[in-house]
Design a protein around this nucleic acid. Structure first.
Lengths: 211, 211
DNA sequence: ATAGGCTTGTGATTGTGATGTCAAGCACTA
DNA sequence: TAGTGCTTGACATCACAATCACAAGCCTAT
């Protein structure tokens, strides 16, 4: 692995980061099919982008291809995993075990890609102690402590919008550095914590809008 | 209402469309607070964008403000609702009533913003006939027929990735013109149908990635 | 009526990402 | 070893969205 992930740093487009994951997903699919080598052209088609885009995206991080041949699937997979910090399983905490939370616990799309919910919290006494998909729901009042003990750095918030800001605050205190929220509202937390907000209503609005 | 939504049409940036919905949400919030007038400056702060961005976004559709004063909250709300096709409740079909589907049926964030799930379908006989949050689960085999009968144009797919392409195909045949999918996979459907794919693994990857 | 203070709407500018293009370079063949 | 064909990597260009900056225009106070 000639990993030159030391070239990195300055201004990688947000879109590039998103695409890198798509490439990785496609590469894993190719691995399963036993394909060893792929040109940018075909990787691009599979991900619905232009081949020059694939090459440019990769070139931000090094030279992974062989001219006249293409990219070695295993090698590039490892490079991308390394770039995206997906070398090992990512431990995730789930806060809020309502319908949405339960759905996330059973959602195969996350675990397949290397994200594993290893702890779940809820404030509702009736839920505490329940075991859902191998994870036992714990008391939300002990959340910070448990997250730190297990060295979890990523959290998914599936709590009502009204609770979201307070929960985010507590997650920040527990030293997580990334939060995925389903509440369409502002979370006033330190800027060094990354937030991603899945805003379903906003997605729906974009779909309906015909402008 | 001096609605000049006839100026519209050519090349509205995708980001503008997304932001218009944020503006609308904020405006409704202002309405509740009884605020009648707001300058672009403050609307911008609430939505975390620049004031010039707000003004430019709105200017694609007309002149809704008053110089020296700002925008009338009620008036702009109506304009945006009109632009975004959110004048009346949007009827939505849900396909797949697993954990995720149930979560969506009970998710207040959708109904609050004018999207109402009026029909739900599943292939599992044990689920058919169940009533969840005022909606009765119907037999997926009759999906196309029921969607057309109720003139539903938007669907949410909460089905396993393996089923997604086939379901999307059937939705296309039922003449829906927009689909929100949670399956991270390609849906080969006519290009006149809008698709939005909520890819949770991809979101997680972006959060974890520190490049 | 007029001046002063705001805020809008818009043309100009800047910044950034997507795309086109092609020399450089590797594998394979003879 | 030289030649052919293919693909990468990088530079140049293009396209578009964000931002700036300011004239135009409304309101209030005097």
């Amino acid at each position: 692995m000639a990993s030159n992930v030391g070239k990195m740093a300055r201004s990688i487009p947000e879109e590039t980061r998103t695409r890198l994951f798509l490439y990785l997903r496609e590469l894993r699919c190719l691995q399963k099919k036993g394909i060893c080598t792929i040109p940018s052209q075909r990787l691009a088609e599979a991900c619905h982008v232009k081949s020059s885009t694939v090459r440019k995206d990769l070139s931000y991080f090094g030279e992974f291809g062989v001219r006249g041949v293409g990219y070695e699937v295993d090698g590039l997979t490892n490079e991308l995993r390394s770039i995206l910090n997906l070398d090992q399983i990512v431990k995730v905490a789930l806060v809020g075990v309502g319908n949405l939370g339960k759905a996330l616990l059973g959602f195969p799309g996350l675990e397949d890609e290397g994200f594993k919910i290893v702890a779940a919290f809820d404030a509702d006494e009736r839920k505490i102690g329940q075991k859902i998909d191998r994870v036992t729901v714990e008391d939300a009042s002990r959340m910070e402590e448990r997250i730190e003990a297990q060295d979890i750095r990523v959290a998914i918030m599936a709590v009502p919008a009204s609770e979201a800001p307070a929960v985010a605050q507590r997650l920040a205190e527990a030293n997580v550095n990334a939060i995925l929220s389903f509440a369409p509202c502002e979370l006033n937390i330190p800027p060094d914590i990354k937030i991603s907000c899945v805003d379903l209503a906003s997605e729906m609005a974009r779909l309906v809008c015909c402008v």
